[in-house]
């Protein structure tokens, strides 16, 4: 075996990078560079360089990353946006008007192009978690179908209801109001990923505490928590939910086919005559 000289590897790599680097010119002192950096959805990252003044360049992704994520079903929540801001900060770039961007002088241009490109690729790691969104969507659909089948004539079902708390607004998955029994129940689907079950449980608990502080009316609402893929939940997280909700449907991933029947059974009990929503433990956060 002839040992490969390290300088040969460097030369070969430099040629590879040069061959793979694509360039196209656009109007108004603008160039687009496609870098040999792959995104999590298999694209090559393109970076736009606009010369603004003699020694001032705006380097950005044209909003491509944001657009691609949204087009692939990624719904960014506050935590995701914080993660993206943290990634941008690490690469010393900023996010503004949905563009990953950096202003640099000529001497910093190469570094700026690489930073925007790497940041754009890194942010598509969000796509790895998108199945959880698809899962939530499916669970909501199953719950909606079960409620429609169960629905007594004097009952109103509203989906994705925004309610005021003292600190912020909260979204409840479903609100079921049964006129004859003068009862109201709220259903939440609590999907959690990446070991965030405890955080999810605490958020659920906090949501109801905040709403009760805003209005005593919410104390009389029965609460049903639906926990898909419960195998990923810790006992501590489940305990918080048990204390905060009146009923919880916790299913393993392979048991979710039975969700519809369990939802109608639970909601019938929670909104039926004789049920007192106040029969639940004190808030675990108290």
């Amino acid at each position: 075996m002839r040992p490969l000289d390290c300088s040969d590897i460097k030369t070969s790599m430099a040629k590879y990078l040069e061959d793979q680097l694509l360039l196209s010119k656009r109007a108004n002192h603008t160039c687009v560079l496609t870098l040999p950096i792959k995104t999590f959805d298999g694209r090559w990252v393109s970076v736009i360089v606009e010369q603004k003044f003699d020694d001032s360049f705006l380097v950005h992704d044209g909003g491509k990353t944001d657009s691609e994520l949204f087009s692939q079903g990624v719904k960014m929540n506050a935590a995701d946006e914080e993660t993206h801001a943290a990634i941008a900060a690490k690469y010393e770039v900023s996010i503004g008007d949905r563009l990953i961007q950096k202003v640099c002088h000529r001497a910093e241009l190469n570094e700026g192009i690489m930073a925007v490109g790497q940041c754009a690729a890194m942010m598509t790691s969000q796509l790895l978690w998108s199945p959880i969104e698809i899962e939530i969507d499916r669970i909501y659909r199953d719950v909606s179908a079960a409620l429609t089948l169960w629905k007594p004539p004097d009952t109103r079902i509203t989906e994705k209801v925004i309610l005021d708390g003292t600190k912020e607004q909260h979204t409840v998955g479903f609100v079921v109001a049964r006129k004859s029994a003068r009862s109201t129940a709220a259903i939440d689907v609590l999907s959690s990923s990446r070991g965030h079950a405890l955080e999810k449980a605490r958020k659920y608990d906090y949501t109801w505490m905040d709403m009760e502080r805003k209005s005593e009316e919410y104390r009389d609402w029965a609460r049903l928590a639906i926990i898909p893929s419960v195998e990923g939940w810790t006992s501590k997280a489940l305990e918080i939910i048990r204390n905060s909700a009146n009923d919880a449907i916790a299913l393993n991933s392979d048991e979710e086919g039975s969700l519809g029947g369990l939802v109608s059974e639970s909601i019938e009990k929670l909104t039926g005559p004789g049920f007192s929503p106040g029969n639940r433990a004190a808030f675990s956060l108290h």
Partner: peptide, 27 residues
């Protein structure tokens, strides 16, 4: 972004998964 055609996307998704669409890529 109207100013940057690189980012234009029209997409159809089923259960939040893209099944069809158009876009631009220098690829």
């Amino acid at each position: 972004n109207p100013e940057h055609f690189d980012s234009w996307n029209v997409t159809l998704l089923v259960h939040n998964r893209r099944i069809d669409g158009f876009g631009w890529e220098q690829g």
